[in-house]
Design a protein around this nucleic acid. Structure first.
Length: 869
RNA sequence: GCCGCGGUAGCUCAGUGGUAGAGCGCAUCCUUGGUAAGGCUGAGGUCCAGGGUUCGAAUCCCUGCCGUGGCACCA
């Protein structure tokens, strides 16, 4: 190095001031219309979407993380030459608006749009690279009117229907819930114990797509395995046999064709000991009509267990109906028919045959009621003469025995043989059964998308003609009471029948808000189109290349969106059959919790944490009262462990907040927010700026750049590029931290021309590499070293693969697996060359004195191991 | 019960056959005209435990322990 050997302090630098730089760059991006998505067939396209927010009115750290993650991808892909679509909208219908209306007497519409306005400002402050010209809210009349249009298309296609059904009724929210929205017997939002009610309901035939929804999971290679498994379990496809038992003796009028059951184990039919039916099976009801004891038993079952815990521990009970059926393979063999509390009416046929030896539930029941237990599957190695079932059913592999024509077969062959026999007898067929139920979409709420049909006393249910869409809310809905305000409105529901012109009433149910969110990604392709979906635009942009959101939507939203995509594709409205090619589920933002001795929760802002070596203690700032530090948990108001994003932006700037939330942990894991962490990010922002500010202004000297710095730069570009490509943002940021330390070790002050030139190249790359994470800082730095235009318009830095490796490698030398020294070798040196260097090394020679070399293992560019004895 | 994920420095996490790393925190010292700041240097690790494979294991395999997520009377 040349220059002044004494330490030179840099010029007095102004501290980096995000309050000044950040708004300035956001304005520059807006003025340049930098993020407008354009259909450009000369470029590869990339559609980045984060799950759109509910407009609660306040941005929280979870939002910051979600949108920062998406923004990294969007900015990265844009710099890599993709035509990027990165839109934003609002999932704006739903109960919170109605609750606010009830509590505060405000208009849900005004409340919602006010919240949107506030949250839009906060989101824009985040500096996201979003095409805001595409923004819409699901409560916009234009959006839900288009939704009504395709809803009617699905109605005509038979995919939407109305049925009287037993539904989950949430007594607090006063509405119906889908099965997916009932968690442990309680409403997913209200937490109220869900009741069963019989109502006329609108439903969508998602079960028609159950096979496709299962099969196509295999094509979603860029989805987390976990989510695919969850969906597969939820749909719950099982293959088996549906068949009828014929009655022995009297055939009840309620089951004239016999009793149909479903089983996945037809191979164990010879182990049957009784037949069971659900308490609400029609046959059970018929029995109850003439048998008061049966009626009492059924009543008992209905009261039954409400919560999952109760169901788990509930004892199996049953009631013998006195009815008898014939075994399908042996008409002389009669089986009793029991009503049993563990059989579910809404799965399969609501009736089973029980094989206690090979099903634990059947075994528990059989032991209690003295039913026979006959094993028909012999485990490998077991002796047929002595094998017995104790308290545990045998469900493993084996050979069929005690089973007539099935004897000697393995389980799979026996299943096939049994099904073939039953089909031959005309008693039943092989069948596929799903756990998935049709999607009930009716909601008895006003603040949702009205279902566009009319009820006519003459013509029945009549769709509203397309030229009369949208069916909009009346302007003067009176909220403030519980129940459906549309139903209560004095005039809105009264209309005329589109068919006969006579008086008729409008449907007052609205659609589940999950319908709103099941196609918004397609509307973003062209949110101003006259048709619900602009097919040409959708063909260009869809599928979403990278979708990002919380794991909590693994079955609800993500399953509905997949179904609607397939249904709309079948109507010719879309070409893709899967909406999201890539899915990323990010973790939550958590924070330590603090409590006073009294147990009262305390906000982080009221607490001072003092670190003393390995121990940390906390106290109240005002009084010095000791505070107990609790686990890090999801930020929530009830535990007072939230941190308001706007306060962080105000103190440290948006870039520091983004950087910290991205750097702390891998994106799929929870991120622990801490004030120390965000301060660390803030220091990094300043150190970056200092480094750029210390570089002499003007073009770099025309010297050959310093080799080591150059190699480090190219290595960095490679590492950060790969880290972003593989969603390891925290790793990429760690490399940037390291590189900054390396740069500081090669300061501009007193540097040679070679170093100054290499530093310029390094800083030019660095400004572009930090842009996805800290976009405002990147622009400021880019400008400082004379970069052309803005970073948002600049190409991602390239790296020269030959420069990402060191020219000379330091190879550790092991003797018998223990490190004993090191040698220098040219990169790529092969065995012979390395051995030559080894022999010339006196230190190694000394180590090997008295030993016989058995083998020398050279791992190119990595390590040498000498095996000696 | 079934299916996952995780266990590496005080904390949060990289590293997934080849020299144990980063950030934060901590300690020492320097600076005090960048100042509710900046810098230098350093300490700190049975890579959860045991067994196996290998010249070599944090990494691969087996067993166990601990934590955590999802599903679950689905025939």
């Amino acid at each position: 190095m040349t220059g002044n050997p004494t330490p030179v302090k840099g010029p007095v630098m102004a501290r980096y001031n995000p309050k000044e730089t950040e708004p300035r760059w956001r304005k520059a991006w807006t003025d340049a219309d930098a993020f407008r998505a354009v259909i450009d067939h000369d470029k590869p396209k990339y559609y980045v979407l984060e799950m759109f927010p509910y407009p609660s009115g306040r941005l929280h750290m979870g939002h910051v993380r979600n949108y920062a993650l998406g923004d990294v991808i969007a900015r990265f892909k844009r710099a890599r030459g993709f035509s990027v679509l990165h839109p934003m909208g609002w999932d704006a219908f739903g109960l919170p608006a109605e609750n606010a209306a009830m509590e505060r007497g405000v208009d849900p519409k005004a409340w919602t749009y006010d919240n949107i306005a506030r949250m839009r400002d906060e989101l824009k402050q985040l500096g996201l690279s979003i095409d805001w010209s595409r923004e819409f809210a699901t409560c916009d009349v234009d959006y839900y009117g288009k939704q009504q249009a395709w809803f009617l298309d699905l109605f005509r296609a038979g995919l939407v229907y109305r049925k009287e059904s037993v539904v989950n009724w949430d007594p607090v929210d006063q509405t119906v819930l889908a099965n997916e929205q009932v968690v442990d017997g309680r409403g997913w939002r209200s937490g109220a114990v869900v009741e069963k009610r019989k109502l006329n309901q609108w439903a969508m035939r998602i079960t028609d797509y159950a096979d496709q929804l299962t099969d196509d999971l295999a094509t979603l290679e860029r989805w987390p395995e976990k989510v695919r498994v969850m969906q597969e379990n939820w749909i719950g496809r099982s293959k088996g046999l549906k068949f009828r038992f014929h009655f022995a003796g009297e055939t009840p009028a309620a089951a004239p064709d016999g009793l149909e059951v479903y089983t996945t184990r037809p191979d164990t039919l010879y182990g049957a000991s009784f037949v069971g039916i659900a308490a609400d099976h029609p046959l059970a009801e018929a029995v109850a009509a003439r048998d008061p004891k049966a009626a009492a038993y059924i009543e008992e079952c209905r009261k039954g267990a409400a919560t999952q815990a109760e169901i788990d521990t509930a004892e199996k009970t049953g009631y013998d109906t006195g009815l008898r059926v014939k075994h399908p393979f042996d008409p002389s063999w009669e089986l009793p028919v029991w009503i049993a509390n563990f059989i579910l009416m809404d799965y399969g046929t609501g009736a089973i045959f029980a094989c206690p030896a090979h099903d634990q539930r059947d075994l528990d029941f059989a032991r209690k009621y003295g039913q026979p237990v006959k094993p028909v599957v012999l485990p490998p190695g077991a002796d047929a003469a002595t094998f017995e079932i104790g308290d545990e059913a045998y469900v493993g592999p084996g050979v069929i025995y005690n089973s007539g024509f099935l004897d000697g077969l393995d389980i799979e062959s026996a299943k096939a043989a049994a099904i073939e026999r039953i089909e031959g007898q005309g008693d039943g067929d092989g069948a596929t059964v799903f756990r998935l139920r049709d999607w009930g979409v009716s909601r008895q709420r006003a603040w949702g998308c009205p279902i566009p049909v009319v009820h006519c006393p003459t013509d029945g249910v009549v769709p509203v003609p397309k030229d009369q869409l949208p069916v909009a809310h009346p302007a003067d809905i009176e909220f403030g009471k519980s129940g459906n305000a549309l139903e209560r409105h004095p005039t809105w529901k009264h209309t005329t029948c589109p068919v006969c012109g006579g008086p008729a009433t409008r449907e007052t149910d609205t659609l589940d808000t999950f319908v709103d969110s099941s196609w918004y990604f397609a509307r973003f392709a062209n949110p101003h189109a006259a048709e619900p979906i602009d097919k040409a635009a959708a063909d260009y942009w869809l599928p979403v290349d990278q979708y990002i959101g919380g794991i909590e939507h693994a079955v609800l939203h993500l399953l509905y969106a997949r179904f609607v995509t397939k249904a709309l594709a079948d109507q010719g409205m879309l070409s893709v059959r899967e909406p999201f090619a890539g899915l990323f589920t990010q973790g939550m933002v958590t924070h330590e919790t603090y409590r006073r001795q009294s147990g009262e929760w305390v906000e982080p802002g009221e607490v001072e944490v003092v670190a003393e070596g390995a121990t940390r203690r906390a106290k109240l700032i005002v009084s010095g009262e000791p505070v107990v530090i609790g686990d890090s948990e999801k930020m929530s108001k009830s535990k007072k462990n939230t941190v308001a994003p706007e306060e962080i932006f105000d103190v440290y700037g948006v870039d520091a907040a983004r950087l910290f939330v991205l750097s702390d942990s891998p994106p799929e894991r929870d991120a622990q927010w801490s004030s120390a962490g965000v301060q660390g990010a803030w220091r990094f922002v300043n150190r970056v700026w200092d480094e750029f500010d210390s570089q002499p202004a003007g073009p770099p000297p025309a010297a050959t750049p310093d080799e080591a710095l150059r190699r480090a730069t190219h290595k960095l570009v490679k590492q950060v590029t790969e880290a972003i490509d593989t969603f390891r943002f925290n790793s990429g940021i760690a490399r940037l931290y390291e590189f900054l330390n390396f740069l500081k070790a090669n300061p501009a002050a007193g540097a040679s021309d070679a170093v100054l030139a290499a530093r310029h190249e390094a800083l030019s790359a660095f400004a572009r590499l930090i842009a996805p994470f800290t976009p405002h800082l990147a622009e400021e730095c880019w400008g400082r070293i004379g970069g052309a235009g803005m970073v948002v318009e600049a190409a991602w830095p390239a790296f020269d693969p030959s420069l990402t490796e060191d020219a000379v490698k330091i190879l550790p030398v092991q003797v018998n697996g223990k490190r004993r020294g090191e040698i220098s070798a040219p990169a790529g040196a092969e065995q012979a060359e390395v051995e030559a260097i080894l022999k010339a090394d006196p230190e190694i020679a000394q180590r090997l004195e008295g030993l016989t070399i058995r083998k020398i293992i050279v791992v190119k560019d990595r390590i040498v191991n000498i095996v000696a004895a």
